[in-house]
């Protein structure tokens, strides 16, 4: 953990959202709101949780701070160390691996010049390896911040990273233009349009 002496307070918007979540639970059961509150705190704080942020959540929910640390350290989606502006999570679980995630990983490493779990010197990128994110149909894939990018090839990955470096916004979802999860060469069934009932 990176200890932090800085303080943390929710901004007005997040505070209102947090209070709404807390109000969902009966009196004495506010601790149930810990995960959404940590999520808001993380979003407000450049995608990572300081000790001050966790302590603030603990106080809001009348929980001992250690109970919040337990939750935050248990879930991998909470970052306890600073991360780059673009948090690149490469899936390397079996379906993605079979579809070439090794190439995606090496493309990222080469392009960014960092290893797994590292952050670029300019603070723009953090690269991590994750387990299945549930988008196997369009494997291989990565998650960057909140969005999924699917049907990747090393070349596409390179281009995406270049675009991100240049500050461009990426189109989320399949990078080959596939709609949803339909077969790669177009639909194989239900090709006709549904007939309208007379």
């Amino acid at each position: 953990m990176v200890s932090s002496t800085q303080s943390f307070t929710f901004n007005a918007e997040n505070l209102a959202r947090a209070e709404k979540i807390i109000a969902k639970y009966p009196a004495g059961r506010q601790a149930s709101a810990v995960i959404p509150l940590l999520d808001y705190a993380q979003r407000q704080n450049n995608n990572w949780l300081t000790q001050a942020a966790m302590d603030t959540v603990a106080k809001m929910l009348s929980m001992p701070p250690i109970r919040v640390y337990e939750v935050a350290s248990f879930y991998t989606m909470f970052n306890l160390k600073p991360v780059g502006e673009n948090f690149v999570q490469v899936c390397t679980t079996t379906p993605c691996w079979l579809r070439g995630s090794d190439g995606i990983v090496s493309s990222c490493k080469k392009k960014l010049g960092i290893g797994m779990g590292e952050t670029t010197a300019d603070g723009k990128f953090t690269l991590v390896e994750v387990e299945c994110l549930g988008a196997c149909v369009n494997a291989p894939m990565v998650q960057i911040n909140d969005d999924y990018y699917e049907d990747l090839t090393p070349e596409l990955m390179d281009k995406m990273l270049d675009d991100l470096k240049a500050g461009k916004k990426l189109a989320e979802g399949s990078q080959t233009g596939r709609r949803g999860s339909c077969a790669q060469n177009g639909p194989t069934s239900l090709t006709e349009k549904a007939k309208t009932n007379a």
């Binding site: 200890s3 250690i66 640390y69």
Partner: peptide
């Protein structure tokens, strides 16, 4: 420490193979 002492300061942090007992801070 949680039940008898009333000073909840110890917890199980991280998980699975990496789980540790500690105060975190």
């Amino acid at each position: 420490v949680d039940e008898i002492c009333g000073t909840p300061e110890l917890g199980g942090i991280y998980r699975g193979e990496s789980m540790e007992i500690g105060t975190y801070v």
